[in-house]
Design a binder for these strands. Structure first.
Lengths: 104, 104
DNA sequence: TAAACATATGATTTGTTATTCATATGTAAA
DNA sequence: TTTACATATGAATAACAAATCATATGTTTA
C-alpha cells in the first residue's frame, strides 16, 4: 500500500510523531526504560542505578507516565514503576539493529 | 533471543539511540523526510513546501545529511536532496501505526 | 568577469527541555 | 501523633537546540 498517497502527512501527525520520539530520545528516560525492561523498580532503586537525584528521576518518570510508557503502583512508602507499553521496545530493537549494521 | 541478558545496554549505546531519535524527533526534519519520501527536492522547493526560511532549511538538512538520512547532489545552481536511508521509514511506519491504534 | 541566483555557514537570539532547589504530600514506624 | 522515610511537584537555573541574521561560497548568465 502506498502510504504516501493514501495517508497524506499533515501537521498534526508530524507533531504527534515528533512528541513520541522526543519522549524516547532523552538518555535518562531511555535508561529508565531499559532498566524497567528487566524488572519493576522503585524510584529509589532507579536513583541508585542511574546515580541521579531523586527529583530528576521523578520528573522524568512523570513524562514517561504521562505518555503511558510506564505505570506506577504504591508499595508501602515507595512507588514501584514498571513498563506499560512494550511497543516501544520493538522500535528500540529496530534502532539497535540499525546502529549495529552501521557499525560494520 | 533474550536481548536483555545477551546485550547489556551501556551508556554509549544509550547515547547512540538518543542521538538517532533526536534527529527524527524535530518537526521540521520530519517534514523534510516525508516530503522527500515522495520525490527528491531542491532546497528552494523544500522552503516553499514548508514555508520556512532558507537558512533554517539548510541547517536542518545539514543535520539530516550528517546522520546519513539524506544525500545531496548539485544540479546547476541548486542542490537536490533525496533520501539516503529508507530504514527510518519502517520506524516511522511503526510509530504511525502505534498512534493510530491509540486513537481508537 | 560582473551580476544574479541558490545554498551553506558562523554567530546571535530565541525557545525549549533537563536538572536542581526547596518544599509539599503521603505512608509507616517509633 | 510526632518523626522519619519515600516520592512528587512548582519555581528557578542551567544546558541545549532551532530559527534568524548576516555573510560567504559556488554556479550560471548577461
Amino acid at each position: 500500500m502506498d502510504t504516501s498517497t493514501t495517508s497524506p502527512i499533515n501537521k498534526e501527525k508530524i507533531q504527534s510523531i515528533s512528541k513520541e520520539f522526543k519522549v524516547i530520545s532523552d538518555p535518562t528516560r531511555l535508561s529508565i526504560l531499559f532498566l524497567l525492561q528487566k524488572e519493576e523498580l522503585s524510584v529509589g532503586n532507579i536513583m541508585l542505578a542511574l546515580d541521579m537525584e531523586q527529583s530528576a528521576i521523578s520528573h522524568q518518570l512523570k513524562i514517561l507516565n504521562d505518555s503511558r510508557l510506564v505505570k506506577a503502583r504504591r508499595e508501602g512508602k515507595s512507588m514501584v514503576y514498571s513498563l506499560d507499553d512494550l511497543h516501544v521496545f520493538s522500535i528500540l530493537e529496530q534502532v539497535l539493529t540499525h546502529i549495529k549494521e552501521q557499525e560494520q
